[in-house]
Amino acid sequence: MSAMSGLAALLEARISTRAFRDTPVSQKTVEDLLNLARQAPSGGNLQPWRVHVVSGTARQAVIDAVQAVQQEHPLGEPDPEYRIYPKPLAEPWRTRRYECGETVYAAAGIAREDKMGRLVHVAGNFQFWNAPVGLFIGLHKDMEPGQWSDLGMFIQTFLLAATEAGLGTCAQEAWSIYPRTVKTAIGMPEDHTLFCGIALGHADLNADVNQARTSRAGLDEIAVFDGF
């Protein structure tokens, strides 16, 4: 029961942190978290994940490279490696995504009519929300949907391990709209797909945006029980 209580607390505590302090995070700390994350399950034990970790000048190099490309491609590079959301995005998923955005903007104090404010906020993705460490997660292009599922379990395990260590995280698919630029900057092989980035650091607990809490669908919407 105590183990379940501890896990429940971690699941409740984990959020997408969008404001960080500049307190450093050591390489040893990141290694410890990744050592926990690599215990995540994967079909056939393929362990398909590939991780690139950046801090200091390496982190800034990625930020600078993407900012340079954004001048010409503000909405992302042509021909992305994968589509983040279906197009069109049907219900109920469209409403869930809309409500998520409105919750975050409201917490950050950005009005619906403040278009520039919203654009500036979104641009924070490409600064890792000021987190001192960034991770980029990819997998080989030969991998199939089953291995993408494995990647999700690896990422969730990492996020929970970081939460237990008192650190904030934000999984960021936003980086995937600049795959060629990011992969060149970090040295990820071309035969790998860049899935997402992860911002890692000490959360700014006083930042209004970190008070945002998104809702979750009820069991009646996501589960069917039979035979009980």
Score class of each variant (00 low, 15 high):
residue 151 L to T: 09
residue 157 T to G: 10
residue 138 G to I: 00
residue 67 Q to N: 15
residue 171 A to P: 01
residue 206 N to S: 14
residue 104 V to M: 01
residue 11 L to G: 08
residue 172 Q to S: 01
residue 24 P to K: 06
residue 167 L to W: 08
residue 114 D to K: 02
residue 6 G to D: 09
residue 195 F to N: 04
residue 83 R to N: 13
residue 42 S to I: 07
residue 153 M to R: 08
residue 148 W to L: 13
residue 202 H to M: 00
residue 126 F to N: 10
residue 66 V to E: 07
residue 182 V to S: 07
residue 187 G to H: 08
residue 148 W to F: 15
residue 50 R to I: 03
residue 92 P to Q: 10
residue 136 F to Q: 00
residue 45 N to S: 08
residue 18 R to S: 08
residue 141 K to L: 01
residue 122 V to C: 09
residue 49 W to C: 11
residue 43 G to H: 14
residue 66 V to P: 07
residue 124 G to F: 06
residue 189 P to L: 02
residue 199 A to H: 11
residue 212 A to F: 10
residue 16 S to G: 13
residue 6 G to L: 00
residue 1 M to H: 13
residue 65 A to Y: 03
residue 29 T to C: 06
residue 155 I to T: 08
residue 41 P to L: 03
residue 78 P to T: 06
residue 155 I to M: 06
residue 137 I to N: 01
residue 69 V to I: 12
residue 116 M to A: 10
residue 44 G to T: 15
residue 144 E to D: 12
residue 161 A to W: 04
residue 34 L to C: 13
residue 43 G to E: 03
residue 143 M to E: 13
residue 189 P to E: 09
residue 158 F to M: 00
residue 152 G to I: 08
residue 94 R to I: 03
residue 144 E to C: 07
residue 7 L to V: 14
residue 116 M to N: 11
residue 13 A to K: 15
residue 11 L to N: 10
residue 196 C to P: 10
residue 45 N to C: 05
residue 141 K to T: 10
residue 171 A to W: 07
residue 64 D to T: 07
residue 53 V to F: 01
residue 140 H to N: 13
residue 130 N to E: 10
residue 182 V to Y: 08
residue 167 L to Q: 09
residue 162 A to W: 01
residue 22 D to I: 07
residue 209 V to N: 06
residue 33 L to Y: 02
residue 18 R to L: 05
residue 200 L to S: 09
residue 164 E to T: 02
residue 170 C to G: 07
residue 37 A to D: 04
residue 87 K to D: 10
residue 72 E to W: 11
residue 105 Y to E: 12
residue 190 E to W: 05
residue 150 D to Q: 10
